[in-house]
């Protein structure tokens, strides 16, 4: 399958993400320049981490006015797979492809560390290779990852099983301590109603090779690839 990694001028995890899908998972992958109007026939679009436009206004706020966004929006509305990692998640929120908003981390500091996240939903193209309750050790690196959503919408998220990852202890329990950035209901990642757009604050591309301290993030890329192989690819009759 083919991945397209969107590059904004201030993206800084674009190369890391491309490296992982290309070199670690041997998939086709290309950069998609934000000023272009070409998705280059990608099967899955990734918004990588970084500081898309310096993020002086709000994280991800300016990125949504980029030319390429028009095509990505259409792609997503037609059921195409879109994954937003960290700043990519913030952009998806600003775009309105996912509900809610990001506030500053509760300790008002940038946080870069490995955290544990629990998979709460495996019925998605991004987690189908994982197990419910499985705990992954994946790094976060953000200033604005304190997820917020109003109460009614939060109920909807639960009702429609849209919460995919939650910050947890190593044993899967939720606690105030494990909820490092103060997100509402410890939400670390969520999916849209249609189940094709996922946003997550942790960086799976930083946890896909054992030499980097953890390869728990592989399950996300493996899921996407499996999903595409089994579900998306036209099957011979």
């Amino acid at each position: 399958m083919k991945f397209g990694v969107v590059v904004f001028p201030g993206s800084n995890c674009d190369s890391d993400t491309l490296y992982v899908v290309k070199e670690v998972f041997n998939q086709e992958a290309e950069f998609l320049w934000h000023k272009d109007h070409d998705l280059k026939n990608s099967d899955c679009i990734i918004f990588p981490g970084g500081f898309s436009y310096g993020d002086y206004l709000r994280s991800g706020a300016i990125a949504r006015f980029s030319p390429l966004i028009k095509e990505v929006r259409e792609f997503a509305l037609n059921g195409g797979l879109v994954l937003g990692i960290c700043n990519g998640f913030q952009i998806l929120l600003e775009l309105g492809l996912l509900p809610g908003a990001m506030l500053r981390n509760k300790n008002l500091k940038f946080l870069c560390q490995h955290v544990n996240i629990r998979i709460d939903n495996t019925d998605t193209p991004f987690t189908l290779a994982g197990n419910i309750g499985q705990v992954l050790s994946i790094p976060i690196a953000h200033f604005d990852g304190n997820y917020y959503i109003d109460n009614n919408s939060l109920k909807d998220l639960h009702k429609q099983n849209q919460i995919v990852f939650r910050y947890s202890e190593q044993n899967g329990n939720l606690s105030k301590k494990s909820n490092v950035n103060g997100s509402i209901n410890s939400i670390a990642g969520l999916i849209n109603k249609n189940g094709n757009v996922l946003g997550m604050m942790p960086h799976p591309e930083r946890a896909s090779e054992a030499i980097l301290g953890s390869d728990d993030g592989r399950v996300i890329f493996e899921s996407i690839i499996q999903y595409f192989d089994k579900v998306k690819k036209p099957q011979p009759c």
């Binding site: 206004l57 908003a101 506030l103 917020y148």
Partner: peptide
């Protein structure tokens, strides 16, 4: 549209 995020 730009300066504020109406959600928060």
């Amino acid at each position: 549209k730009v300066l504020a995020n109406p959600i928060i």
